[in-house]
Each structure stands twice: as C-alpha cells, then as structure tokens.
C-alpha cells in the first residue's frame, strides 16, 4: 500500500465530525424538555436501541446501493422472512426460551438467529441472481421489479405462515428491566445496543482493515477501475448482497422480539423508517446510515414521549431538516 504514496493525492481530510456531534446535541436538547432525568435516560437508551436495530436492517441496503447502484425495495421482505423463520424455530423451543437460564435461552436464540440469517441470505442470493441481475443500471425497472418481488414474497409468507399475526415472546433473560435508583432500563434494549454496536464494529473493521473491505470501498468509489485492475467486482457484489440480506434477517428477528409480534406487514412498515435513515445518512454511506439510524431512534422516542400525536411525523420532519441543511444527506457518497 505504500506504493500509492507516490501520487500527489490530496491528504485524507479525515471524518467529517459535525454529523457525529448531532447525536449528543439531540440528546442534550431533549434534556431540559423532559421533566425528569430518569425518564430521559430511559428514553435515550430506548432511542439508541431502536436506532441500532434500524441500523442493522438498513446497513445492508445502503451498502448495496453504494456498491451496485441498486435500491432494493424488497429489502423489507428479507426482514419479514427473517422474523418468520426465527418464529418457526423458537416456537418448538419455547420451553428453552422461557426457562430462567441464560444458557438455555441462548440455546434457543442462537439457532433461531442463525436460521433467520441463513434463509434471508439465501433469499438474497436468489433475488440478486434471478430478479435484479437483468435490470442493473435501469433504475425505473429496478424499482418496479423489486416492488413486484416484495408483493410476491409477502404473499408467499401468507401461503406458508398464514395471514395471522403471531406472538413472539422475548427470551426469559431479556424480559424486564434493570433498576438503577430511579432509572429503569429494559434489558432487551441493552442487548439490542450491544448487538448493534457489535455489528457496526465488525462492519467497520471489515470495511477498513481487510482486503475485501478495501475492494468494497474501492468498488463504491469506482467499480470500473477495480475491474480494470483485475478483480471480479461481480463476486464482491453478490457477497455484499447476501451479507446485507442476512443482516436484514437478523434485524428482523430483533425487531420482532422488540415488538413481540410477527406480521407479514412488518417489513414494509420498517422499510419506511429505513428509507428515511438511508436518505438522512446519504445514499450509500454506512457511517451516515449509522448516525441517521441513531438520530431517528432518539427523535422518535423523545417526540413520542413529549407529543405522541406527532411522533410518527417527527422522522419526516427530521429528514426534511437534514436535507435542507445537506441536500445529499449527512455523508454524501462522492460520485452521486
């Protein structure tokens, strides 16, 4: 890598820190508005947890867009499928997940999560090969085709799992809250934050410290050039697509456990939040997606507490404000 030093490239300006400062800023602005400190802590943790879950679901989508210029409107279907597969695994294992033992809970959760990620990843592979491949580079058709895929996938879920909403209780260990003085923090929320941070850290390391990550980043900047250097960018594409779909499956499981219900419409409901997050972050930027997700989670929780009526609109308002400030999102990806 030292060979590249010869060119007189401008120095890397480092990370743009202003968007990073937005998260503590939002939290601090909310502090005086919310009557008591414990409530504020609870809401902040809830917001961060929600943000982390949205990030897990959105990160794959934004990376796929950055790399392949494909916006997959059927991403929501992977989320739903993940949740349903996990439900199918967890229901026979209900005795384990209801047991008051961390290890038995883990023994139920791990296969459920792995199955969800595997099925969602496999579906992603199928989708890339069959549905999206013929329409690379044609945005209009991509949107239409992936919408069609979403319709078919949603209907197939109905065929396999039936149209009813299924209840999905959290594993015993993650029910209830920790109480610290006056502050109550849901255990599941802590778990969500931990998993989210782990996914972000893993993604960050892979993208910035490995050879594959280097190829992916180079592919986002200029795919043709990477191909000219002799790498098969298509393989990277497929890998990223599968990984992104698997993450959507994971996110689906987490979201379903958070809501404690699974329904075939959940994917589409979350998709709207995911789109908002991706637009806020800058189409194609993983870092922007992370910050966007946390912002959306925090704002949704604060506003939900202060003015429940406008809570759902607050995300749109946040998006509009960010777009007025930076029309390309927080971290614009260079070529777009």
């Amino acid at each position: 890598m030292s060979a590249t030093k010869t060119s007189a490239a401008p120095r890397d300006p480092g990370i743009d820190k202003i968007p990073l400062a937005l998260i503590p800023l939002v939290a601090l602005v909310a502090l005086p508005l919310i009557p008591s400190l414990p409530t504020w802590v609870t809401l902040t943790v809830a917001g961060l947890a929600m943000g982390m879950m949205i990030f897990i679901m959105a990160s794959g989508l934004t990376l796929v867009f950055g790399l392949m210029d494909v916006m997959n409107f059927a991403h929501g279907a992977f989320i739903t499928i993940g949740a349903f597969v996990a439900t199918s695994v967890l229901i026979p294992l209900a005795r384990w997940s209801d047991a008051d033992s961390l290890w038995m809970n883990l023994a139920a959760m791990l296969p459920a999560i792995l199955a969800a990620m595997a099925v969602a990843g496999a579906l992603g592979w199928f989708f890339e090969r069959v549905i999206i491949k013929p329409v690379y580079g044609q945005h209009l058709k991509q949107i239409l085709i992936t919408m069609g895929g979403l319709i078919v996938a949603e209907q197939l879920i109905h065929v396999i799992w039936g149209p009813d909403i299924i209840a999905l209780p959290k594993p015993m260990t993650l029910r209830g809250s920790f109480i610290l003085g006056d502050i109550a923090i849901g255990k599941y929320r802590i778990a969500a934050v931990v998993v989210g941070l782990a996914v972000f850290a893993a993604m960050f390391l892979v993208l910035n410290r490995t050879r594959v990550g280097l190829l992916i980043r180079a592919g986002v900047e200029d795919g043709e050039m990477v191909e000219a250097l002799g790498y098969r960018i298509r393989r990277v594409f497929i890998g990223v697509f599968i990984a992104g779909s698997a993450l959507a499956g994971l996110g689906g499981v987490m979201w379903a456990l958070y809501q404690e219900t699974v329904s075939s419409a959940m994917g589409m409901q979350v998709m709207i939040l995911i789109f908002i997050v991706i637009i806020i972050g800058g189409l194609g930027s993983v870092g922007g997606c992370f910050i966007g997700a946390l912002l959306v989670g925090l704002v949704a929780n604060y506003v939900g507490f202060l003015a429940p009526k406008v809570a759902l609109g607050s995300n749109i308002l946040l998006m509009v404000l960010i777009l007025l400030w930076r029309p390309q999102g927080l971290y614009p990806v260079a070529k777009r």
Binding site: M71, H139, L140, I272, F275, I278, N315, I316
Partner: peptide
C-alpha cells in the same frame, strides 16, 4: 436528483 431518491421520498411522505 435521481429517480430512486424521488421514489423513496414519496414513499416516506
């Protein structure tokens, strides 16, 4: 901006 951006914004709105 792009088609996709418009589609996403309209869906959200």
């Amino acid at each position: 901006v792009k088609t996709i951006f418009f589609a996403m914004i309209t869906l959200a709105v």
